[in-house]
């Protein structure tokens, strides 16, 4: 027994000794958004199979967490690529520069639609963002008293707008940690908010208040935070025809026999509508490449070439099968060009 303890400890010591020495990495390390994850992994897998390079490792950390890791420094222990479901922020860019990550190549890969969907067993809804704001915001303008705000009193969609069905408002959506939630707030709540002159007036007088009114989602059980698992939301919609769910387009795309997307401002969340830019709630997806790692880590350039090839992100590429909405031809060409010349991102 004594022997085994000694052997065990010795083994542990050896192992940690080896670990510190083994620093060279022969695979690409990618971190970031869970929205970009299904697309990046598809490309990575294809890349791993079709080339002599190893399949990249892709961690799903969320956009913010991913960029933080990405911007921690230069060297093989830091990731080479960060996926993001939003553009890199100025503050993140600054942080990158501070840590020596001076040259970053920005690649926009396409669009993702955010849908409001319900069960096929209920009628399809056609709603405006203004009404969505009234249905989901924590406080709304008081109709009786101009310029003041009350806790959201709306119980049914009909309360919000008489044209909508008299069904209880019940929306399952992502929690605040999710990028989908950020995008929903920005593209729906902020926009819906802008339709009210009394809120617009606040913008100049009390900016913080304006922000909190526009961006706070109600907490009285009408909006149900369903976790990050969108499959769960789809399943719940199936069981409860009165409920609506908020999630990415790819989940609608895979479940068209069970659920339908609500029209927003008259546009339905169909592939063509989102691709044409007509559907209002869609956001661009990006990834960022550390230029200093090209040449040190094998395969980055080839991975970029695979991602930006027409068979991947093109109009009929394999990423569209996974639910990615491709960019228009000219935009795609422009970004493919940027990638080829590895033009670094500049931010004012």
């Amino acid at each position: 027994m004594k022997k085994s303890i000694v052997v065990g400890l010795a083994a542990a010591l050896c192992v940690s000794g080896v670990a510190v020495e083994a620093s060279a990495r022969d695979y690409i390390s990618i971190v970031g958004s869970s929205t970009v994850y299904p697309f990046a992994t598809t490309v990575a897998e294809q890349f791993g199979k079709a080339t002599r390079f190893k399949t990249p490792k892709i961690e799903s950390t969320g956009s913010g967490g991913g960029l933080k890791l990405f911007c921690s420094g230069i060297g093989t222990e830091y990731p080479d690529i960060a996926n993001a479901s939003r553009r890199i922020k100025k503050s993140e860019y600054e942080q990158c520069r501070e840590k020596g990550v001076k040259e970053i190549v920005e690649v926009k890969i396409g669009y993702d639609g955010i849908v409001l969907a319900n069960s096929k067993n209920a009628p399809q809804m056609d709603i405006e963002r203004k009404d969505l704001f009234l249905a989901l915001a924590k406080s709304v303008p008081d109709p009786a008293n101009e310029g003041t705000f009350i806790d959201n009193p709306h119980k049914t969609w009909k309360d919000v707008n008489p044209a909508l069905p008299a069904v209880k408002i019940e929306v399952l959506g992502p929690p605040p940690t999710s990028g989908t939630r950020d995008a929903f707030v920005e593209l729906v709540m902020d926009e819906g908010c802008a339709a009210f002159p009394s809120i617009e007036a606040l913008k100049n007088t009390d900016k913080d208040r304006y922000k909190s009114i526009c961006q706070t989602i109600r907490e009285d059980g009408v909006y149900i935070e369903a976790g990050e698992n969108d499959n769960l939301i789809v399943q719940k919609l199936n069981v409860n025809p009165d409920a609506y769910g908020i999630f990415g387009f790819s989940f609608l795309d895979q479940n068209t026999d069970r659920i339908q997307g609500s029209k927003i401002e008259g546009k339905s969340p169909a592939f063509e509508e989102i691709a044409a830019g007509a559907y209002p709630v869609s956001r661009p997806l990006y990834f960022y490449v550390k230029k200093a790692h090209i040449g040190t880590i094998p395969g980055i350039e080839e991975y970029l070439a695979e991602f930006t090839s027409d068979k991947a992100w093109g109009e009929e590429g394999y990423l569209t099968d996974k639910g990615l909405i491709p960019m228009p031809d000219d935009e795609r060409l422009r970004f493919a060009d940027d990638v080829k010349s590895l033009r670094p991102l500049t931010m004012e």
């Binding site: 192992v15 080896v18 670990a19 083994a22 695979y27 390390s29 994850y37 990046a40 992994t41 990575a44 897998e45 791993g48 190893k54 399949t55 490792k57 892709i58 961690e59 799903s60 950390t61």
Partner: peptide
Amino acid sequence: MVAFIVDPPGGILEP
């Protein structure tokens, strides 16, 4: 370790 990894690991240092 919550990551997309295709190749099965060959040792305790591989992802």
